[in-house]
Amino acid sequence: MRRGTIVALGGGGFSMEPDNPLLDDHVLSLATRRRGADGLPRVCFVPTASGDAESYVDRFLAAFDGRAETGSLQLFRLADLDHVDLRSFVLDQDVIYVGGGSTANLLALWRLHGLDAILVEAVEAGVVLAGISAGMNCWFEASVTDSFGPLAPLHDGLGLLTGSACPHFDGEAERRPTYVDLVATGSLPAGVAADDGCALVFRDGELHEAVSSRPGAGAWRVHLAGEGLDVAESPIDVRYLG
């Protein structure tokens, strides 16, 4: 069983709820190492899925200013960081926070640079792995993604968490019906879904709890029920952080 803490945000956080810090504060609270010189956690933003969009990085830096010792890992600009030992840099963080965008592009570039293996080592060493949307999908074996246009299954995740994942379960009109259909037909294995404003906290590979930044944000286990193509959406208890 994989050791460590992973936080999968279906939606929310600084990029979607800039005036609601509850989910991001909860992620910070899980960082127990506190490696920063001033006692604040070191949090590294990884915007690979967005093509290292500078505006995304700027929003992260502004949102976490004063709450953490911040940095970013921009693989599209890695030539500018040729003096950086990628493994040492990642292992020296308290939290790796992965942004949204293309899950497929994220996975391809991480593997090209060996970041996938480094992240496995990091989580087992106590670094909290967190992410939203593509940054949720990437930790699982499979997911539903719009990386190729229309929503489709992706069976190429890192596999740190078993089964499949679906972010934005209530936030995008086609997410819920598409994910349920993919599980029903066997195109995706059973898994978990999270609304915008909801995060799933995993410890040592098992779901520990679900938390939310707004009342009513939900999470579900989506799985086959009985014979045929019947799918159950079993609610997961969610703790509102407000």
Rank of each mutant, 00 (worst) to 15 (best):
residue 2 R to K: 11
residue 3 R to C: 11
residue 5 T to Q: 01
residue 9 L to R: 05
residue 12 G to Q: 02
residue 13 G to L: 05
residue 13 G to Y: 02
residue 14 F to T: 06
residue 17 E to K: 08
residue 18 P to E: 07
residue 22 L to S: 10
residue 22 L to Q: 07
residue 31 A to H: 03
residue 32 T to H: 04
residue 33 R to P: 04
residue 34 R to I: 05
residue 35 R to D: 04
residue 36 G to K: 03
residue 36 G to I: 04
residue 39 G to S: 02
residue 48 T to H: 01
residue 49 A to F: 05
residue 52 D to N: 15
residue 54 E to Q: 15
residue 56 Y to G: 03
residue 56 Y to L: 12
residue 60 F to T: 06
residue 72 S to C: 10
residue 76 F to V: 10
residue 77 R to I: 02
residue 79 A to K: 15
residue 85 D to E: 10
residue 85 D to A: 10
residue 86 L to A: 07
residue 87 R to M: 01
residue 88 S to C: 00
residue 90 V to G: 01
residue 98 V to Q: 05
residue 99 G to D: 01
residue 100 G to M: 10
residue 102 S to L: 09
residue 107 L to G: 03
residue 109 L to N: 07
residue 117 A to W: 02
residue 118 I to N: 11
residue 119 L to M: 15
residue 119 L to I: 10
residue 121 E to W: 06
residue 123 V to A: 02
residue 130 A to S: 14
residue 132 I to T: 13
residue 138 C to S: 06
residue 142 A to N: 07
residue 144 V to Q: 13
residue 144 V to M: 15
residue 146 D to I: 08
residue 147 S to N: 06
residue 148 F to I: 09
residue 155 H to E: 14
residue 160 L to V: 08
residue 160 L to F: 13
residue 162 T to A: 14
residue 164 S to F: 03
residue 177 P to S: 12
residue 185 T to E: 14
residue 186 G to E: 14
residue 191 G to M: 12
residue 191 G to L: 11
residue 193 A to D: 10
residue 193 A to K: 11
residue 196 D to R: 11
residue 198 C to K: 05
residue 199 A to P: 09
residue 199 A to D: 01
residue 209 E to M: 03
residue 212 S to Q: 05
residue 213 S to A: 12
residue 218 G to F: 00
residue 218 G to S: 12
residue 219 A to H: 02
residue 219 A to T: 00
residue 221 R to W: 14
residue 221 R to A: 03
residue 226 G to N: 09
residue 240 Y to D: 14
